[in-house]
Amino acid sequence: MSTTEAGGRIAIEVTVNGTRHRREVEPRLLLVQLLREDLRLTGTHIGCDTTYCGACTVIVDGEPVKSCTMLAVQADGAEILTVEGLARDGELHPLQRAFSENHGLQCGYCTPGMLMSAHALLARNPDPDRKQIRKGIQGNLCRCTGYHNIIAAIDAAAAAMREGK
């Protein structure tokens, strides 16, 4: 439970990529700021200020969330997965591998958010068609790739994951 501390700070507890963190935060602190500035997980990026671009997408209790639109205090008690938590024992997640193999990234700025949205999509639907993939990433902007290779990458990752690779 959140408790207000002196100075208007609120104590919260979040589990990020399997590690539990306790912090006392300003009520106005955004989840993305907590992740980037307090927990130093700078893989989650900020690309806009109107919840449009999706660069800050993370998974909160299984759901994709634009972390610029959630207060850190709202995430109290939550399990959060960020891009840094995708690889296991240094081995790339199939989505990460597929993005690289299919040239699904250029500058790489949208990539963490794209990966997290794709991760959520495939958790819901392990075998999406291309239209469903487009829909799954409609909340994520990419200004470099024209999306074509991102869609191909998610398609390839879905196939690999279905085959257990």
Binding site: T42, G43, Q96, F99, L105
Partner: peptide, 13 residues
């Protein structure tokens, strides 16, 4: 790609 897909790039911010 390796650093970028892992979220280990270094952008200015």
């Amino acid at each position: 790609d390796d650093r970028l897909v892992r979220g280990r790039g270094l952008f200015t911010d």
